[in-house]
Design a protein around this nucleic acid. Structure first.
Lengths: 212, 212
DNA sequence: AAGGTAATTTACCACTGGGTAAGTTCAATT
DNA sequence: AATTGAACTTACCCAGTGGTAAATTACCTT
């Protein structure tokens, strides 16, 4: 017996490396199909490894998700925070700086955005709570931004501010999705495109430009 | 024997009525959790009925989804089409008319929007194709709108138009989602809110308003 | 060489969820 | 009252998926 031609045994990949590979694959799968529709086996297959290894390394499907979520959440949060903090007078307006920060932070793992904004997380689960925590943190930043902007525009309704916050989030999501469908676009190109679009939108909604 | 206290047998609800109840429940569930995460049993329970009845009436989970999709798709498509067609000179700008049409068409079944824009449909399935067909039809309308608007703004890049189309779709989605979270808001109130927000956004991105 | 340990697989269990077969109750017709 | 057909359920099968136990291989030390 012996030598049943079993493929078991180490493949010489140290644990830390393997974990990174798994996290990358999991982020891709979670981001592409959502938590619910993602199978552990699919992630394993993507790495070229079998299911039990993932369970040994990350405990459970949810553990694996959380391991993906944390770095993503931190990275995005940091990026947005710094984008909103440092504002020269001569810098582009805040929304554009935030978009630029997003594109830069997501480059190389664009689908990571949808790991954070995954609607299929089991409600009440640890994963859902952690994801919500990160989203709330980001929303908090967005809230100060939108509130400030609305204030300068003279609007005071707090519901308006909340709706605008959500609208902004939806805009970001849509832009990231479009970006995913156009892999050749660099982050910088995206930022420039957004600049153009905002400018265009501005012209469109400004019929009172020639207020004689 | 007999009378094992079985709850089987007709409940006096004619098929057509029951089908409508089921479709309403299914639309709600599909819209709330997405196709993948929705279970047929959950829909049945919501109606107060058991699984096999749904299969008898609609064939399969996918059949049930398609039966939900068609009326929704047609309704939305019609609403948007008429909103884009009839434009007085004195009417509000097209995007706002479209939003108003959306809110009116979705009132009473707001989650229906997410039946159409369900990212968890099994790729390649009949359901995914039909949903894509409706989305494309709507996108087609949006495309003519955005292209026209971009043209007046002087932008010519077709990718810009495509991106704006997606951004607009994302905006609509976000607004509908916010609306779902605020059930007390009437469609008209939503339209007014959007009018205010667009106006505010316009002021914000117009630093060159006071070009003395 | 022998032994230990890390990396990895094979083989399995339990549960859930879509789907089906067959039976059960009710109401209208004959 | 007996017959038929529509509405509906109980009980079941089967595939897929998360998860686990135990075995297998390879490297590193002594």
């Amino acid at each position: 017996m012996t030598t049943l031609s079993s493929k078991a045994g180490t493949k010489g990949v140290p644990r830390a490396d393997r974990e990174q590979q798994i996290l990358a694959a999991a982020t891709e799968e979670f981001g592409r199909h959502g938590y619910e529709a993602t199978t552990v086996a699919a992630i394993a297959a993507r790495v070229g490894v079998t299911k039990p290894l993932l369970h040994q390394y990350f405990g459970s499907k949810e553990g694996l998700y959380l391991a993906c979520l944390d770095p993503i959440g931190d990275r995005l949060l940091d990026a947005i925070r710094t984008a909103m903090a440092g504002h020269d007078a001569a810098a582009p307006p805040t929304p554009l700086r935030v978009l630029d920060a997003l594109f830069t932070a997501l480059d190389g793992q664009r689908r990571a955005w949808f790991v954070l904004y995954d609607p299929t997380l089991p409600p009440g689960s640890d994963a859902a709570q952690r994801a919500a925590h990160y989203r709330d943190a980001i929303d908090g930043l967005a809230a100060t931004g939108t509130a400030e902007l609305l204030h300068t525009a003279g609007t005071t309704d707090p519901l308006d501010a909340d709706a605008l916050k959500h609208a902004w989030r939806g805009l970001c999501t849509a832009l990231v999705r479009w970006w995913i469908d156009h892999p050749d676009q660099s982050p910088e190109a995206m930022t420039r495109r957004c600049t153009r679009l905002i400018e265009a939108a501005h012209t469109i909604f400004a019929p009172g430009d020639d207020t004689t």
